[in-house]
Design a protein around this nucleic acid. Structure first.
Lengths: 225, 225
DNA sequence: GCAACCTAGATTGTCGACAATGTAAAAAAT
DNA sequence: ATTTTTTACATTGTCGACAATCTAGGTTGC
Protein backbone atom coordinates (compact mmCIF):
# COMPACT_ATOMS: atom_id res chain seq x y z
CA UNK A 1 0.00 0.00 0.00
CA UNK A 2 2.07 2.85 -1.24
CA UNK A 3 0.89 6.37 -0.44
CA UNK A 4 -2.09 6.75 -2.69
CA UNK A 5 -1.76 9.49 -5.24
CA UNK A 6 -5.16 10.49 -6.50
CA UNK A 7 -5.40 10.90 -10.23
CA UNK A 8 -6.65 14.43 -9.88
CA UNK A 9 -5.59 17.82 -8.61
CA UNK A 10 -4.17 20.81 -10.40
CA UNK A 11 -2.36 20.40 -13.69
CA UNK A 12 0.89 21.05 -11.87
CA UNK A 13 0.16 18.16 -9.52
CA UNK A 14 -0.56 15.87 -12.43
CA UNK A 15 2.60 16.89 -14.25
CA UNK A 16 4.56 16.39 -11.06
CA UNK A 17 3.31 12.85 -10.66
CA UNK A 18 3.81 11.92 -14.28
CA UNK A 19 7.31 13.33 -14.34
CA UNK A 20 8.23 11.62 -11.08
CA UNK A 21 7.00 8.35 -12.48
CA UNK A 22 8.93 8.79 -15.72
CA UNK A 23 12.09 9.67 -13.86
CA UNK A 24 11.83 6.82 -11.38
CA UNK A 25 11.19 4.21 -14.05
CA UNK A 26 14.08 5.46 -16.14
CA UNK A 27 11.83 6.47 -19.00
CA UNK A 28 13.62 9.77 -18.67
CA UNK A 29 17.33 9.05 -18.57
CA UNK A 30 19.54 10.35 -15.79
CA UNK A 31 20.99 13.73 -16.54
CA UNK A 32 18.57 14.27 -19.39
CA UNK A 33 17.62 17.83 -20.15
CA UNK A 34 13.99 18.64 -19.45
CA UNK A 35 12.60 20.99 -22.04
CA UNK A 36 9.67 22.97 -20.69
CA UNK A 37 7.87 23.65 -23.96
CA UNK A 38 8.20 20.09 -25.16
CA UNK A 39 6.95 18.54 -21.91
CA UNK A 40 4.10 21.02 -21.67
CA UNK A 41 3.09 20.07 -25.17
CA UNK A 42 3.24 16.37 -24.38
CA UNK A 43 1.13 16.75 -21.25
CA UNK A 44 -1.29 19.07 -22.97
CA UNK A 45 -0.87 22.05 -20.66
CA UNK A 46 0.76 25.46 -20.58
CA UNK A 47 4.30 26.08 -19.40
CA UNK A 48 3.14 27.64 -16.14
CA UNK A 49 1.91 24.48 -14.42
CA UNK A 50 4.83 22.54 -15.81
CA UNK A 51 7.32 24.97 -14.32
CA UNK A 52 5.60 24.62 -10.97
CA UNK A 53 5.91 20.86 -11.25
CA UNK A 54 9.63 21.18 -11.94
CA UNK A 55 10.02 23.35 -8.85
CA UNK A 56 8.27 20.75 -6.79
CA UNK A 57 10.48 18.01 -8.17
CA UNK A 58 13.47 20.20 -7.42
CA UNK A 59 12.37 20.31 -3.79
CA UNK A 60 12.10 16.51 -3.92
CA UNK A 61 15.60 16.32 -5.37
CA UNK A 62 14.50 14.40 -8.41
CA UNK A 63 15.67 17.16 -10.71
CA UNK A 64 18.41 19.75 -10.44
CA UNK A 65 18.00 23.22 -11.81
CA UNK A 66 20.45 25.86 -12.95
CA UNK A 67 19.06 29.38 -13.38
CA UNK A 68 18.63 30.28 -17.03
CA UNK A 69 19.83 26.85 -18.09
CA UNK A 70 16.87 24.68 -17.27
CA UNK A 71 16.25 21.48 -15.34
CA UNK A 72 17.86 18.07 -15.70
CA UNK A 73 17.05 14.68 -14.24
CA UNK A 74 19.24 13.97 -11.23
CA UNK A 75 22.12 11.56 -11.75
CA UNK A 76 22.64 8.70 -9.31
CA UNK A 77 26.33 7.91 -9.22
CA UNK A 78 27.92 5.30 -7.04
CA UNK A 79 28.70 7.65 -4.18
CA UNK A 80 25.18 9.01 -4.08
CA UNK A 81 23.72 5.54 -3.86
CA UNK A 82 26.21 4.52 -1.21
CA UNK A 83 25.21 7.53 0.85
CA UNK A 84 21.56 6.74 0.31
CA UNK A 85 21.92 3.18 1.54
CA UNK A 86 23.81 4.33 4.61
CA UNK A 87 20.95 6.67 5.45
CA UNK A 88 18.43 3.94 4.77
CA UNK A 89 20.20 1.63 7.17
CA UNK A 90 19.94 4.16 9.97
CA UNK A 91 16.35 5.18 9.27
CA UNK A 92 14.83 1.81 8.57
CA UNK A 93 16.75 0.25 11.41
CA UNK A 94 15.15 2.78 13.69
CA UNK A 95 11.77 2.13 12.12
CA UNK A 96 12.08 -1.56 12.95
CA UNK A 97 13.10 -0.96 16.51
CA UNK A 98 10.14 1.32 17.16
CA UNK A 99 7.70 -0.73 15.11
CA UNK A 100 8.39 -3.72 17.35
CA UNK A 101 6.69 -1.89 20.19
CA UNK A 102 4.10 0.06 18.22
CA UNK A 103 2.63 -2.34 15.70
CA UNK A 104 -0.55 -4.18 16.57
CA UNK A 105 -0.86 -7.92 16.12
CA UNK A 106 -3.17 -7.22 13.22
CA UNK A 107 -0.50 -5.07 11.58
CA UNK A 108 2.01 -7.87 11.85
CA UNK A 109 -0.45 -10.34 10.45
CA UNK A 110 -0.99 -8.11 7.45
CA UNK A 111 2.74 -8.03 6.96
CA UNK A 112 2.81 -11.82 6.90
CA UNK A 113 0.08 -11.91 4.30
CA UNK A 114 1.96 -9.40 2.20
CA UNK A 115 4.97 -11.71 2.20
CA UNK A 116 2.76 -14.66 1.29
CA UNK A 117 1.57 -12.77 -1.74
CA UNK A 118 5.15 -11.96 -2.68
CA UNK A 119 6.14 -15.58 -2.42
CA UNK A 120 3.25 -16.69 -4.59
CA UNK A 121 4.13 -14.11 -7.17
CA UNK A 122 7.77 -15.08 -7.26
CA UNK A 123 6.95 -18.74 -7.69
CA UNK A 124 4.42 -18.05 -10.38
CA UNK A 125 6.26 -15.61 -12.56
CA UNK A 126 9.81 -16.10 -11.48
CA UNK A 127 9.71 -12.49 -10.40
CA UNK A 128 8.02 -10.12 -12.74
CA UNK A 129 10.38 -7.35 -11.95
CA UNK A 130 8.01 -4.45 -11.67
CA UNK A 131 5.61 -6.06 -9.23
CA UNK A 132 8.41 -7.55 -7.19
CA UNK A 133 10.00 -4.16 -6.95
CA UNK A 134 6.93 -2.32 -5.77
CA UNK A 135 6.19 -5.21 -3.47
CA UNK A 136 9.50 -4.89 -1.70
CA UNK A 137 8.88 -1.19 -1.36
CA UNK A 138 5.52 -2.01 0.15
CA UNK A 139 7.16 -4.13 2.80
CA UNK A 140 9.57 -1.44 3.84
CA UNK A 141 6.88 1.19 3.81
CA UNK A 142 4.56 -0.87 5.95
CA UNK A 143 7.25 -1.12 8.59
CA UNK A 144 7.78 2.60 8.48
CA UNK A 145 4.05 2.93 9.04
CA UNK A 146 4.40 0.59 11.95
CA UNK A 147 6.77 3.02 13.61
CA UNK A 148 3.93 5.55 13.74
CA UNK A 149 6.51 8.18 12.86
CA UNK A 150 4.99 10.40 10.21
CA UNK A 151 8.27 12.02 9.30
CA UNK A 152 9.82 8.65 8.67
CA UNK A 153 6.87 7.63 6.56
CA UNK A 154 7.16 10.79 4.53
CA UNK A 155 10.85 10.30 3.96
CA UNK A 156 10.46 6.69 2.93
CA UNK A 157 7.14 6.78 1.19
CA UNK A 158 6.74 9.88 -0.77
CA UNK A 159 9.70 12.17 -1.05
CA UNK A 160 13.41 11.68 -0.72
CA UNK A 161 13.25 7.98 -1.26
CA UNK A 162 12.00 8.26 -4.78
CA UNK A 163 15.68 8.14 -5.53
CA UNK A 164 15.66 4.65 -4.16
CA UNK A 165 12.84 3.52 -6.42
CA UNK A 166 14.80 5.03 -9.26
CA UNK A 167 17.83 2.97 -8.40
CA UNK A 168 15.78 -0.17 -8.01
CA UNK A 169 14.47 0.01 -11.51
CA UNK A 170 17.94 0.09 -12.84
CA UNK A 171 19.33 -2.72 -10.78
CA UNK A 172 16.48 -5.14 -10.28
CA UNK A 173 16.79 -6.92 -13.59
CA UNK A 174 18.70 -9.75 -12.03
CA UNK A 175 16.13 -11.30 -9.77
CA UNK A 176 18.55 -13.68 -8.13
CA UNK A 177 18.33 -11.81 -4.88
CA UNK A 178 14.58 -11.93 -4.52
CA UNK A 179 14.38 -15.25 -2.70
CA UNK A 180 17.01 -14.59 -0.03
CA UNK A 181 15.49 -11.14 0.37
CA UNK A 182 12.10 -12.69 1.03
CA UNK A 183 13.68 -14.97 3.58
CA UNK A 184 15.19 -11.99 5.34
CA UNK A 185 11.85 -10.21 5.28
CA UNK A 186 10.28 -13.18 7.03
CA UNK A 187 12.95 -13.14 9.70
CA UNK A 188 12.29 -9.49 10.32
CA UNK A 189 8.56 -10.04 10.67
CA UNK A 190 9.14 -12.82 13.18
CA UNK A 191 11.38 -10.57 15.23
CA UNK A 192 8.64 -7.97 15.20
CA UNK A 193 6.10 -10.59 16.25
CA UNK A 194 8.29 -11.44 19.22
CA UNK A 195 8.48 -7.73 20.02
CA UNK A 196 12.25 -7.91 19.83
CA UNK A 197 13.12 -4.44 18.57
CA UNK A 198 16.86 -4.83 18.80
CA UNK A 199 16.86 -8.00 16.76
CA UNK A 200 14.48 -6.53 14.19
CA UNK A 201 16.73 -3.50 13.83
CA UNK A 202 19.79 -5.66 13.38
CA UNK A 203 18.14 -7.87 10.80
CA UNK A 204 16.88 -4.89 8.83
CA UNK A 205 20.29 -3.23 8.85
CA UNK A 206 21.88 -6.42 7.64
CA UNK A 207 19.20 -6.81 4.97
CA UNK A 208 19.79 -3.31 3.61
CA UNK A 209 23.53 -3.69 3.81
CA UNK A 210 23.27 -6.89 1.80
CA UNK A 211 21.12 -5.19 -0.79
CA UNK A 212 23.73 -2.46 -1.17
CA UNK A 213 26.55 -4.96 -1.59
CA UNK A 214 24.55 -6.74 -4.25
CA UNK A 215 23.92 -3.52 -6.12
CA UNK A 216 27.49 -2.45 -5.73
CA UNK A 217 28.74 -5.70 -7.24
CA UNK A 218 26.41 -5.29 -10.14
CA UNK A 219 27.73 -1.82 -10.80
CA UNK A 220 31.25 -3.19 -10.76
CA UNK A 221 30.38 -5.66 -13.45
CA UNK A 222 28.70 -3.00 -15.55
CA UNK A 223 31.71 -0.76 -15.28
CA UNK A 224 34.06 -3.58 -16.26
CA UNK A 225 32.08 -4.13 -19.44
CA UNK B 1 29.21 27.56 7.90
CA UNK B 2 25.69 26.94 6.80
CA UNK B 3 25.19 26.26 3.12
CA UNK B 4 25.62 29.63 1.54
CA UNK B 5 22.62 30.86 -0.33
CA UNK B 6 23.66 33.48 -2.84
CA UNK B 7 21.52 36.58 -2.91
CA UNK B 8 20.76 36.14 -6.58
CA UNK B 9 19.00 33.78 -8.91
CA UNK B 10 15.56 33.85 -10.43
CA UNK B 11 12.76 35.73 -8.71
CA UNK B 12 11.29 32.40 -7.69
CA UNK B 13 14.56 31.50 -5.95
CA UNK B 14 14.59 34.81 -4.12
CA UNK B 15 10.99 34.44 -3.03
CA UNK B 16 11.69 30.90 -1.91
CA UNK B 17 14.58 32.01 0.30
CA UNK B 18 12.73 34.97 1.77
CA UNK B 19 9.68 32.88 2.52
CA UNK B 20 11.72 30.08 4.05
CA UNK B 21 13.47 32.62 6.25
CA UNK B 22 10.20 34.19 7.33
CA UNK B 23 8.67 30.84 8.11
CA UNK B 24 11.67 29.55 10.03
CA UNK B 25 11.98 32.67 12.17
CA UNK B 26 8.29 32.63 12.96
CA UNK B 27 7.68 35.96 11.24
CA UNK B 28 4.98 34.02 9.44
CA UNK B 29 2.96 32.18 12.06
CA UNK B 30 2.35 28.46 11.84
CA UNK B 31 -0.76 27.59 9.93
CA UNK B 32 -1.01 31.08 8.48
CA UNK B 33 -2.62 31.39 5.11
CA UNK B 34 -0.26 32.51 2.37
CA UNK B 35 -1.98 34.85 -0.03
CA UNK B 36 -0.33 34.78 -3.43
CA UNK B 37 -1.28 38.25 -4.62
CA UNK B 38 -0.31 39.89 -1.33
CA UNK B 39 3.07 38.18 -1.14
CA UNK B 40 3.81 38.87 -4.79
CA UNK B 41 3.06 42.52 -4.14
CA UNK B 42 5.30 42.62 -1.08
CA UNK B 43 8.21 41.01 -2.93
CA UNK B 44 7.68 43.16 -6.00
CA UNK B 45 7.12 40.38 -8.47
CA UNK B 46 4.31 38.68 -10.39
CA UNK B 47 2.32 35.77 -9.10
CA UNK B 48 4.08 33.31 -11.41
CA UNK B 49 7.45 33.22 -9.68
CA UNK B 50 5.77 33.32 -6.31
CA UNK B 51 3.70 30.26 -7.13
CA UNK B 52 6.85 28.45 -8.17
CA UNK B 53 8.42 29.35 -4.85
CA UNK B 54 5.42 27.94 -3.00
CA UNK B 55 5.75 24.71 -4.94
CA UNK B 56 9.38 24.49 -4.00
CA UNK B 57 8.59 25.08 -0.35
CA UNK B 58 5.90 22.45 -0.60
CA UNK B 59 8.57 20.00 -1.72
CA UNK B 60 10.62 21.09 1.29
CA UNK B 61 7.59 20.52 3.52
CA UNK B 62 7.65 24.04 4.87
CA UNK B 63 4.18 24.73 3.49
CA UNK B 64 1.19 22.53 2.83
CA UNK B 65 -1.07 23.08 -0.11
CA UNK B 66 -4.65 22.18 -0.81
CA UNK B 67 -5.80 22.47 -4.43
CA UNK B 68 -8.00 25.49 -4.97
CA UNK B 69 -7.59 26.54 -1.36
CA UNK B 70 -4.06 27.87 -1.30
CA UNK B 71 -0.95 27.32 0.77
CA UNK B 72 -0.46 27.53 4.53
CA UNK B 73 2.62 27.51 6.71
CA UNK B 74 3.19 24.04 8.15
CA UNK B 75 2.21 23.52 11.78
CA UNK B 76 4.66 21.86 14.14
CA UNK B 77 2.65 20.08 16.77
CA UNK B 78 4.10 17.98 19.54
CA UNK B 79 3.91 14.71 17.67
CA UNK B 80 5.62 16.13 14.61
CA UNK B 81 8.49 17.45 16.69
CA UNK B 82 8.77 14.19 18.58
CA UNK B 83 9.02 12.32 15.28
CA UNK B 84 11.58 14.81 14.02
CA UNK B 85 13.82 14.36 17.02
CA UNK B 86 13.63 10.59 16.75
CA UNK B 87 14.81 10.84 13.16
CA UNK B 88 17.52 13.28 14.15
CA UNK B 89 18.81 10.88 16.76
CA UNK B 90 19.21 8.15 14.17
CA UNK B 91 20.71 10.33 11.47
CA UNK B 92 23.07 12.42 13.54
CA UNK B 93 24.12 9.41 15.57
CA UNK B 94 25.14 7.77 12.32
CA UNK B 95 26.87 10.95 11.20
CA UNK B 96 29.00 10.90 14.34
CA UNK B 97 29.96 7.28 14.00
CA UNK B 98 31.11 7.75 10.43
CA UNK B 99 32.68 11.15 11.06
CA UNK B 100 34.95 9.57 13.67
CA UNK B 101 36.69 7.68 10.91
CA UNK B 102 36.37 10.22 8.11
CA UNK B 103 37.22 13.59 9.60
CA UNK B 104 40.75 14.87 9.31
CA UNK B 105 42.63 16.21 12.33
CA UNK B 106 42.24 19.66 10.82
CA UNK B 107 38.48 19.21 10.65
CA UNK B 108 38.36 18.28 14.31
CA UNK B 109 40.52 21.24 15.21
CA UNK B 110 38.13 23.53 13.41
CA UNK B 111 35.32 22.03 15.41
CA UNK B 112 37.18 22.87 18.63
CA UNK B 113 37.64 26.44 17.50
CA UNK B 114 33.97 26.69 16.68
CA UNK B 115 33.11 25.65 20.22
CA UNK B 116 35.62 28.17 21.60
CA UNK B 117 33.80 30.90 19.72
CA UNK B 118 30.50 29.69 21.09
CA UNK B 119 31.82 29.74 24.62
CA UNK B 120 33.14 33.26 24.24
CA UNK B 121 29.84 34.41 22.85
CA UNK B 122 27.85 32.85 25.64
CA UNK B 123 30.04 34.42 28.31
CA UNK B 124 29.94 37.81 26.66
CA UNK B 125 26.29 38.18 25.85
CA UNK B 126 24.70 35.58 28.07
CA UNK B 127 23.54 33.95 24.87
CA UNK B 128 22.23 36.24 22.21
CA UNK B 129 19.66 33.76 21.12
CA UNK B 130 19.90 34.10 17.39
CA UNK B 131 23.65 33.65 17.13
CA UNK B 132 23.64 30.85 19.66
CA UNK B 133 21.00 29.10 17.69
CA UNK B 134 22.73 29.29 14.36
CA UNK B 135 25.95 28.37 16.11
CA UNK B 136 24.52 25.14 17.41
CA UNK B 137 23.23 24.37 13.96
CA UNK B 138 26.73 25.00 12.65
CA UNK B 139 28.12 22.41 15.00
CA UNK B 140 25.70 19.74 13.93
CA UNK B 141 26.15 20.58 10.29
CA UNK B 142 29.93 20.39 10.53
CA UNK B 143 29.67 16.89 11.88
CA UNK B 144 27.35 15.92 9.06
CA UNK B 145 30.01 17.27 6.71
CA UNK B 146 32.54 15.17 8.53
CA UNK B 147 30.59 12.05 7.60
CA UNK B 148 31.26 12.86 3.93
CA UNK B 149 27.73 11.69 3.23
CA UNK B 150 26.19 14.20 0.86
CA UNK B 151 22.68 12.96 1.39
CA UNK B 152 23.01 13.41 5.10
CA UNK B 153 24.37 16.90 4.61
CA UNK B 154 21.47 17.77 2.36
CA UNK B 155 18.94 16.49 4.83
CA UNK B 156 20.47 18.32 7.74
CA UNK B 157 21.71 21.42 6.04
CA UNK B 158 19.31 22.62 3.51
CA UNK B 159 16.00 20.88 3.26
CA UNK B 160 13.95 18.82 5.63
CA UNK B 161 15.67 20.14 8.68
CA UNK B 162 14.45 23.65 8.18
CA UNK B 163 11.65 22.41 10.38
CA UNK B 164 14.19 22.04 13.09
CA UNK B 165 15.42 25.60 12.77
CA UNK B 166 11.81 26.63 12.91
CA UNK B 167 11.31 24.85 16.16
CA UNK B 168 14.49 26.23 17.61
CA UNK B 169 13.38 29.77 17.14
CA UNK B 170 10.28 29.08 19.11
CA UNK B 171 11.92 27.26 21.97
CA UNK B 172 15.32 28.83 22.37
CA UNK B 173 14.21 31.80 24.40
CA UNK B 174 15.19 30.13 27.62
CA UNK B 175 18.92 29.88 27.23
CA UNK B 176 19.43 27.82 30.35
CA UNK B 177 20.39 24.80 28.34
CA UNK B 178 23.18 26.44 26.36
CA UNK B 179 25.97 25.71 28.82
CA UNK B 180 25.30 22.01 29.38
CA UNK B 181 24.79 21.71 25.64
CA UNK B 182 28.21 23.23 25.04
CA UNK B 183 29.68 20.76 27.48
CA UNK B 184 28.11 17.89 25.61
CA UNK B 185 29.40 19.27 22.33
CA UNK B 186 32.91 19.23 23.75
CA UNK B 187 32.56 15.64 24.86
CA UNK B 188 31.47 14.68 21.38
CA UNK B 189 34.45 16.42 19.80
CA UNK B 190 36.85 14.63 22.12
CA UNK B 191 35.28 11.29 21.24
CA UNK B 192 35.79 12.15 17.58
CA UNK B 193 39.39 13.13 18.28
CA UNK B 194 39.97 9.73 19.83
CA UNK B 195 38.38 8.16 16.78
CA UNK B 196 35.84 6.45 18.98
CA UNK B 197 32.83 6.32 16.69
CA UNK B 198 30.64 4.29 19.01
CA UNK B 199 31.13 6.68 21.89
CA UNK B 200 30.60 9.70 19.67
CA UNK B 201 27.35 8.21 18.41
CA UNK B 202 26.17 7.48 21.91
CA UNK B 203 26.97 10.96 23.14
CA UNK B 204 25.25 12.57 20.20
CA UNK B 205 22.14 10.48 20.67
CA UNK B 206 22.04 11.38 24.30
CA UNK B 207 22.58 15.04 23.49
CA UNK B 208 19.68 15.12 21.05
CA UNK B 209 17.48 13.14 23.35
CA UNK B 210 18.18 15.64 26.12
CA UNK B 211 17.34 18.51 23.82
CA UNK B 212 14.01 16.91 23.03
CA UNK B 213 13.17 16.37 26.68
CA UNK B 214 13.98 19.99 27.37
CA UNK B 215 11.74 21.19 24.57
CA UNK B 216 9.01 18.81 25.58
CA UNK B 217 9.02 20.14 29.13
CA UNK B 218 8.82 23.67 27.85
CA UNK B 219 5.80 22.78 25.76
CA UNK B 220 4.18 21.26 28.82
CA UNK B 221 4.56 24.51 30.69
CA UNK B 222 3.20 26.51 27.80
CA UNK B 223 0.17 24.29 27.56
CA UNK B 224 -0.45 24.53 31.26
CA UNK B 225 -0.55 28.32 31.01
C1' DG C 1 -35.81 32.31 14.08
C1' DC C 2 -33.47 28.84 11.43
C1' DA C 3 -32.00 26.68 7.41
C1' DA C 4 -31.23 26.17 2.66
C1' DC C 5 -30.16 28.61 -1.39
C1' DC C 6 -28.33 32.05 -4.20
C1' DT C 7 -25.36 35.93 -5.42
C1' DA C 8 -21.03 38.88 -5.22
C1' DG C 9 -16.40 39.21 -4.08
C1' DA C 10 -12.03 37.34 -3.52
C1' DT C 11 -8.58 33.84 -4.53
C1' DT C 12 -6.52 30.30 -7.07
C1' DG C 13 -5.50 28.01 -11.62
C1' DT C 14 -4.27 28.53 -16.38
C1' DC C 15 -2.84 30.46 -20.61
C1' DG C 16 -0.55 33.26 -24.17
C1' DA C 17 2.65 36.92 -25.21
C1' DC C 18 6.88 39.35 -24.52
C1' DA C 19 11.55 40.22 -22.49
C1' DA C 20 15.99 38.35 -21.02
C1' DT C 21 19.35 35.04 -21.31
C1' DG C 22 22.04 31.45 -23.21
C1' DT C 23 23.66 28.70 -27.29
C1' DA C 24 25.18 27.39 -31.56
C1' DA C 25 25.92 28.25 -36.21
C1' DA C 26 27.67 31.37 -39.77
C1' DA C 27 30.75 35.15 -41.16
C1' DA C 28 34.94 37.75 -40.82
C1' DA C 29 39.67 38.45 -39.60
C1' DT C 30 44.32 36.76 -38.79
C1' DA D 1 42.62 26.61 -41.61
C1' DT D 2 41.81 28.32 -37.12
C1' DT D 3 40.13 31.58 -34.06
C1' DT D 4 37.24 35.30 -32.94
C1' DT D 5 33.15 37.87 -33.49
C1' DT D 6 28.61 38.43 -34.67
C1' DT D 7 24.10 37.17 -35.52
C1' DA D 8 20.06 34.34 -35.38
C1' DC D 9 17.55 30.95 -32.89
C1' DA D 10 16.01 28.35 -29.10
C1' DT D 11 14.93 28.29 -24.24
C1' DT D 12 14.04 30.19 -19.92
C1' DG D 13 12.02 33.97 -16.98
C1' DT D 14 8.30 37.14 -16.21
C1' DC D 15 4.03 39.43 -16.53
C1' DG D 16 -0.86 40.56 -17.18
C1' DA D 17 -5.41 38.91 -18.32
C1' DC D 18 -9.05 35.56 -18.12
C1' DA D 19 -11.49 31.30 -16.46
C1' DA D 20 -12.58 28.20 -12.65
C1' DT D 21 -13.26 27.63 -7.91
C1' DC D 22 -14.05 28.72 -3.26
C1' DT D 23 -16.00 31.81 0.61
C1' DA D 24 -18.93 34.82 2.85
C1' DG D 25 -22.88 37.44 3.21
C1' DG D 26 -27.50 38.26 2.22
C1' DT D 27 -32.05 36.63 0.75
C1' DT D 28 -35.94 33.77 0.59
C1' DG D 29 -38.88 30.16 2.22
C1' DC D 30 -40.54 27.45 5.92
Amino acid sequence: MLPYTPEQGTLADIASRRLAQSIVTGELAQGQKLNEAELAERFGMGRGPLREALRHLEGMRLVTRVPNAGARVVVLDRKTLSDLYAVREALEGMACRIAATQMTDADIDQLRKLLDRHEAQIKKEGGKVYAQNEGDLDFHYQIARGSRNQMLMDMLGSEQYQLLRMCRYRTSRNAERTLPALQQHRQIVEALAQRDGELAEMLMRRHINGAWRSISEMMDKEEAA
